[in-house]
Nucleic acid binder design. Structure first.
Lengths: 241, 241
DNA sequence: CTCGTCCATTAAACAATGTGAATGAGCCCT
DNA sequence: AGGGCTCATTCACATTGTTTAATGGACGAG
């Protein structure tokens, strides 16, 4: 529990985790904390001695720039080891904050190092989880740079659906996520007004419905085609790593 | 040599590499290959059994989208372990190609695993190198999403200068890089025409000169201020990792 | 030398996106 | 019921960026 089961599920989707490695993860001491909407989980500029794993709810990473504007560089779902990289980066160059109410568990770097010390494969699996994050970010770069606002939004919706499905939080073409249009703008790099316009376009084409924090994908196939969505980057292959 | 000295230099800038770990790196068998301009080093969709390190020259990662358009998601300089992540990702979701003439060395995954097997710290240092890539990508996302074309271009120039300085390829506010305006457009997510306009703006402000594949930064301080450039994300801190 | 090619540059029309302001729906608080 | 909030929506207009096309310089091949 405490989200560690979801982490195992997320990793096990990519390569079988042997019993002893699962045991190492389950044995990690955790410090559970619940954050309210918009509360800061990890502060920019801080030097964390622990990493946090999402047990329930959502979190975003954001970089702030001058004049209070910000860009969300990642959306994290339950099972994501949000700032595992702080283990290596030491100083946070961005912050992590809760999207809606969010339960996380903190795990000390010290304990992580101990657990990984005896298991090169477990180390690689955790490394893999950061690598998948990177892969997602590459795709976001492409969406930001070379796709239209409409394609980009469609792409984000497809991605969230697939990622949430892995941890059992999406099915039947629908999922819940507490994302306002303003926050969506910070994800897409668009103004609120344009997010709204873009959302209308997808609605007009009967591709999605987005209401009361719940998204329904009316035609995944057409949505994915419009977005040019190809799930390869999510690394859903189960194989030796 | 073969670029491994640069890799060591790049890592050693972040945490002292003990002699035995340097020896492990130096002992890695390499397969050197030289690529011509625009040649593909790693192909999208392939399943590499080796990772490549840049010894000399530059390489870019790019994702292609419909109609031959593309987005460059990273620029790699000598010393960069370009597709170290293929060790874990297995299937490439993007390609890597040479920018100008580029010498790389390929290192078998098998040999990397062996070298890392006995050294958790070396493993972390290599992991760190992929994590720095991620950090750079996060910053690119922010540039794409929330900064003006002018700021974005200025930011890229500042970043390249700092990164090249580490490996001794930039000094006195100048460095050479074989990047055409079309390619720059694929980095910034802009049209060629707009890249040109944006470059003119920086020239008009006497911030940079960009001619014959050589960039001269006329006023780093003002350029960094304009770009809102903060080098924290490049992790230039030397400390235990 | 001359042709062809690559690259940088410019112009003008057009499309995409941002800004600022106003409105209304829903909801919590009292 | 009323007030004050957040959020979604819409409008008019400003700004930024794209597209297409044309031009000229540099350079290598023949």
């Amino acid at each position: 529990m405490f989200g560690k089961d979801l982490l195992v599920r997320m990793l096990d989707r990519r390569d079988t985790l042997p019993r002893d490695e699962i045991a190492l993860i389950e044995a990690l001491p955790v410090r559970p904390v619940t954050f309210g909407p918009d509360e800061e989980i990890v502060r920019e500029g801080s030097r964390p001695a622990e990493s946090c794993l999402i047990a329930n709810g959502f979190a975003v990473r954001n970089q702030t720039i001058r004049e209070g504007r910000r860009q969300i560089t990642a959306i994290h779902v339950p099972g994501d080891f949000v700032d595992l990289h702080s283990l290596l980066l030491k100083v946070m160059d961005h912050s992590v904050s809760a999207l809606g109410s969010c339960d996380v568990v903190f795990i000390r770097h010290k304990d992580l190092l101990t657990a990984m010390g005896g298991s090169p494969h477990l180390t690689r699996m955790l490394w893999l989880s950061t690598t998948i994050d990177t892969s997602i970010q590459r795709t976001w770069i492409t969406c930001l740079g070379r796709r239209s606002a409409e394609q980009h939004l469609a792409h984000v919706i497809c991605e969230l659906y697939v990622r949430l499905e892995i941890v059992g939080l999406a099915s039947d073409q629908t999922f819940a996520i507490p994302l306002t249009q303003a926050e969506l703008g910070d994800v897409l790099g668009l103004s609120i007004v344009h997010v709204n316009r873009t959302l209308q376009e997808l609605r007009a084409k009967d591709l999605v419905s987005w209401k009361d924090r719940r998204i329904v994908i009316l035609d995944f196939q057409r949505l994915a085609l419009l977005a040019d969505f190809d799930a390869t980057y999510l690394n859903l292959f189960h194989e030796p790593r």
